[in-house]
Design a protein around this nucleic acid. Structure first.
Length: 311
RNA sequence: GCCGAGGUAGCUCAGUCGGUAGAGCAGGGGACUGAAAAUCCCCGUGUCGGCAGUUCGAUUCUGUCCCUCGGCA
């Protein structure tokens, strides 16, 4: 058993898209004169505001936000980079004695902050491109078969259709000379950087889905289509990672006349719902999660007080 | 009121020459260690509109009632 009492304390607030994390967290952080560290894989991108439901300028004046608007859409970024940079932000807050509230819906990012990922190395472009072209030519099944020879444990864990993970496993072998399964087995998320109070926001499925539908309509009304048109005009390629995310890929599909407007809205809402469901699956598996409704700020505040031993 | 068509999974429908049923969409569950708003896996029991009759057995045939949609009055 790891003694966590020595670790610095932070509060995390997570939950599915559209549940109301932003206003909840701002209200909570305000009471403790804390600051927010975003844990959202899309809000990190500048110029992508409407589709990512980024906190407004006013909200960010009320409570200072970190890890939002930190890279351009065409810059490389990933969970490990997030873990490093978010850790720096939190360190700084701790030094200044400011309570840190890590808020967002990207489970892997929160994990990468609290329990750093295994020591690997970002795959260099050459290796990644080589594997990608092999994937294109030979297909996922062939690469899976190849992985089975080089790292049978990983091959057993990864489904033959899961092209991304097959690719990653091969990358790790080529960049580190070791198998990803060995590295994982040695790592196992055994060390934590912080002691956390984990708050998960939830709502009955029906209510959440109604909120999501409404929120998508609001994004459209706020000019999501124009935002995407602007990004394209600035030269950002539709193939860029953030351009493949919810909302952005849908607007691109419409602009390229692949889908009607009606179909675009339908799939956009549907895909948001499916995303929310996947987030639930992730967060449900987090041990020690304290589930609350988004209007239970009061309860959350009491939990935070106890957590920080403020009374 | 009469004539016609139909009432089967949340929605749109298929089907059973009588042995209690299946697709698409929607939805649900799960995985997740440097692309994670990504990627991947698994999941279809529903008074076959109600009641009665025929039958060993009816969602399937017959009768009747209810409802929906057309057309005619």
């Amino acid at each position: 058993m790891v003694n966590t009492s020595e670790l610095p304390k932070i509060v995390t607030v997570c939950g599915p898209t559209g549940v109301g994390k932003t206003s909840f967290a701002i209200e909570l952080a305000k009471r403790f004169s804390g600051e927010i560290v975003g844990a959202d894989s899309m809000q990190i991108y500048r110029q992508m505001d409407i589709g990512t439901a980024k906190p407004t300028a006013a909200e960010r004046t009320t409570v200072r936000h970190h890890m939002v608007d930190i890279v351009d859409p065409n810059e490389a970024f990933d969970a490990a980079a997030y873990g490093r940079r978010a850790h720096q932000s939190v360190q700084q807050l701790l030094e200044e004695n400011i309570p840190a509230f890590v808020v967002g819906g990207t489970g892997l990012y929160i994990k990468a902050l609290v329990q750093p990922l295994f020591e690997g190395r970002a795959s260099d472009r050459e290796v990644r491109e080589r594997i990608q072209s092999r994937l294109k030519e030979e297909g996922a099944a062939a690469l899976h078969a190849n992985l089975k020879e080089r790292d049978p444990t990983a091959a057993a864990r990864i489904h033959p259709n899961d092209a991304y993970r097959i690719q990653r496993a091969l990358e790790v072998i080529e960049t580190t000379g070791r198998s990803i399964s060995d590295l994982h087995d040695a790592h196992r998320f055994s060390k934590a950087r912080y002691e956390t109070l984990e708050i998960g926001l939830t709502l009955p499925r029906e209510q959440l889905y109604a909120r999501i539908d409404r929120r998508v309509d609001q994004m459209i009304a706020a000019g999501l289509l124009e935002e995407v048109r602007g990004l394209l005009a600035l030269g950002f390629d539709p193939g860029l990672k953030p351009m493949q995310s919810l909302g952005y890929r849908h607007m691109v599909g419409f602009l390229q006349e692949r889908t009607s407007w009606e179909e675009t809205l339908r799939t956009l809402k549907r895909d948001h719902r499916r995303y929310a469901k996947r987030q639930f699956t992730w967060f449900k598996a987090v041990a020690g999660m304290n589930w609350l409704a988004p209007d239970q700020v009061e309860t959350a505040a009491e939990m935070v007080e106890r957590f920080f031993n403020l009374r």
